[in-house]
Design a binder for these strands. Structure first.
Ligand code: SF4
Ligand code: SF4
Lengths: 159, 159
DNA sequence: TTTATCATAGACTTCACAGGTCCATAATTG
DNA sequence: CAATTATGGACCTGTGAAGTCTATGATAAA
């Protein structure tokens, strides 16, 4: 139960792209150097981000990547779901075990409530997932950027 | 990013143990039969649960498992952490990349705040984890049991 | 139009771990 | 003692994360 390193890399790459001093496109070389990740691997991640419309990419001389929309509209959930896929937190196995008959079919399947498919365990887990997603939706790349820039200005002010 | 099947099995096993008609210990054979999971694999899971004090086990004739504490004191989080381990949702790699210097060390490490180790990305992720854990702490095996028994009594009442 | 520069996509390798089986041993009860 | 039950370790297998390499394609500057 952990997020993959790719998600880590993707988040950091997007943060780098969101830095204000970056006016022009930034190439895979620069990203690779600042993140400390190989170009080939990182390019795969960026490619995924592009396919899902998180970043734009332009090939050729002076090409590179840039955010496809403002940093405050790129949520953590967006990034995570692109990289990790949209699989559920809890996927029920053994739907045909004897126990399932007792737990799930007791109130259902007797044509009293037509589409009462929700199982009890899954209901709890889906609630957990929804809570997690809600939180991740409220935090964007800009959230991190703001914190970083606040510190930075504080430092330059002191100097 | 998914919970393992073992967690699934563990939850179902505990639910079975929590059923009221179970007055005596229930052996691995019965559990295996109701869950549809092999005895050998399931016994490993039960063993883990015992080591962490979730269930008690007694060997020998008429032995088996029983809940070590009331079902409303066994939270989903308990079970998940026993099976999945207590690893963090987000483990930062590349703490020594160039980017880390910019993001994390800006406000820290200049002897102004002594133990200001918290990074920005990690802070968001830890918040997410805390939210998730909080929810999982509020839901116990009893939660599921209540739902199941409510349906059951409803059925028997109708009959 | 050529050429250098960049991104893209696929094949491939390596490694760790989930998921699962099997067996030998220990503890308990009757 | 004997039957029954849980425990622990060794072992196998498939899958997917993590990463490399290379050929192809698009673009802009010269
Ligand atoms: S009770 Fe719920 S989680 Fe369990 S097998 Fe049935 S549907 Fe799946
Ligand atoms: S900025 Fe935070 S998440 Fe990124 S490398 Fe540093 S400590 Fe880790």
């Amino acid at each position: 139960m952990q997020f993959s390193k790719s998600t880590d890399y993707a988040l950091h790459a997007l943060i780098h792209l969101g830095l204000p001093e970056r006016d022009t496109n930034v190439g895979i070389k620069e990203l690779s150097a600042t993140l400390g990740v190989s170009e080939s691997y990182l390019s795969k991640i960026m490619s995924k981000l592009r396919q899902d419309g998180i970043v734009r990419a332009v090939p050729g001389v002076n090409g590179g990547y840039e955010l496809a929309r403002p940093a405050d509209q790129i949520t953590f959930l967006d990034v995570i779901q692109v990289i990790e896929g949209r699989q559920q937190l809890f996927e029920c196995s053994n739907m045909n075990s004897r126990q399932h008959q007792l737990l799930a079919q007791e109130g259902a399947a007797q044509q009293e409530q037509p589409a009462r498919n929700g199982c009890l365990v899954e209901k709890v887990m889906e609630g957990a997932e929804e809570h997690l997603h809600q939180y991740l939706r409220e935090h964007t790349i800009q959230t991190v950027l703001d914190e970083a820039l606040k510190h930075r200005s504080h430092e330059s002010h002191k100097k």
